[in-house]
């Protein structure tokens, strides 16, 4: 099983990595990576992609899993500083409380790159941060829907993420921005599905009942793919065809949404790339070898995938990444 996984990982990465031209520069460098933990499939994929990219670039990656605790991350970073690593990657579990340990890294002249989450504090404490733009993700999803329905009247139901979480707020905002001014599109219902499959299914069941058995619903927008997968099952249970009777658009690009696309049950997903480390290594390479200071905030691409983008291939490529 492990061999298959490794093979799949290798195959998947060649697709994910855009270029390895800058690779030579980081050969043999020691880089510490303090990861939050493995609380979600995406996080596990980020870890495995980071490790694989590092192997490909010949980096000696020191990996530390913090198990969702900041004190473990601080300990790990202190450990990296003591070992005299060339650079440190941190996926910060919380936004505050980093000044002291990052100042220590700065005094030791070790560049720090933040992955996928930001921190509150002076910007000179870290070299750069690599993250996705969640508002843009929502906007890309919304723009797809605007184009897909053209001039038709379309009632949209929305499955929000956990109330108050930043992806839920931002992905909602981006989607609404894309729909602004389009008279034929309206969000008629919006509820939280807590980012989970079972809640996504339950909420969608409620929506379907409340909207004439689904007759009034033209599309469902889910803040993540897992809720969309749940919603697809609810639509099928109601005797409708997901993807045809009700359009399904979501965010994240996890393997199972591609499986749904293969079956014709999902229409579009926006990728939250697990390859945050690629741009980070690129920036570190330019900085360590050329002295080029990168932009403070590197935004990853929010790529749209539809059934036209080889969903079977994407599924196979991602399956082994630990999602």
């Amino acid at each position: 099983m492990n061999i298959i996984k490794t093979l799949a990982l290798g195959a998947g990465l060649s697709g994910l990595l855009l270029s390895a031209a800058y690779a030579e520069g980081l050969q043999g460098k020691v880089i510490g990576f303090s990861q939050i933990g493995s609380e979600s499939g995406w996080r596990a994929a980020e870890t495995s992609v980071t490790k694989a990219v590092a192997t490909e670039l010949g980096i000696d990656l020191k990996f530390a899993d913090a198990q969702q605790k900041q004190e473990n991350q601080i300990k790990a970073i202190r450990g990296f500083i003591a070992q005299g690593v060339d650079a440190i990657l941190v996926a910060p579990v919380v936004a505050t409380g980093w000044e002291e340990v990052l100042t220590e890294a700065k005094e030791a002249n070790i560049p720090v790159v933040l992955l996928d989450r930001g921190i509150e504090g002076p910007e000179d404490l870290y070299l750069t941060s690599v993250a996705s733009d969640q508002v843009k993700e929502g906007r890309v999803a919304g723009e797809w829907l605007v184009n897909a329905v053209a001039d038709k009247q379309c009632n949209v139901v929305e499955l929000q993420g956990t109330v108050g979480s930043s992806p839920a707020i931002n992905r909602k905002q981006g989607f609404e921005e894309a729909l602004a001014g389009k008279a034929n599109l309206a969000i008629i219902r919006s509820q939280t599905g807590d980012f989970t499959r079972s809640k996504g299914k339950e909420v969608m069941e409620g929506f379907l009942k409340a909207e004439g058995g689904g007759a009034n619903i033209c599309a469902v927008y889910a803040h993540n793919d897992d809720m969309a997968v749940g919603a697809i099952q609810a639509i099928k249970d109601a005797g409708l065809k997901p993807g045809t009777d009700i359009l399904v658009v979501s965010i994240d690009a996890v393997p199972d949404i591609f499986a749904a696309m293969v079956a014709g049950e999902a229409n579009a997903t926006v990728e939250l790339t697990p390859n945050m480390a690629g741009p980070a290594f690129e920036a570190l390479d330019a900085y360590l070898n050329g002295g080029t200071v990168p932009a403070k905030f590197i935004i990853t691409e929010s790529k749209l995938y539809t059934p036209a983008d080889d969903p079977q291939g994407e599924y196979d490529r991602r399956k082994g990444l630990g999602y």
Binding site: E39, R197, S198, Q233
Partner: peptide
């Protein structure tokens, strides 16, 4: 029941 309902075992969220 919960696993059968979503056709998958979601260790992070099942029964949370």
């Amino acid at each position: 029941i919960v696993a059968g309902d979503i056709r998958g075992a979601d260790a992070n969220n099942a029964g949370l």
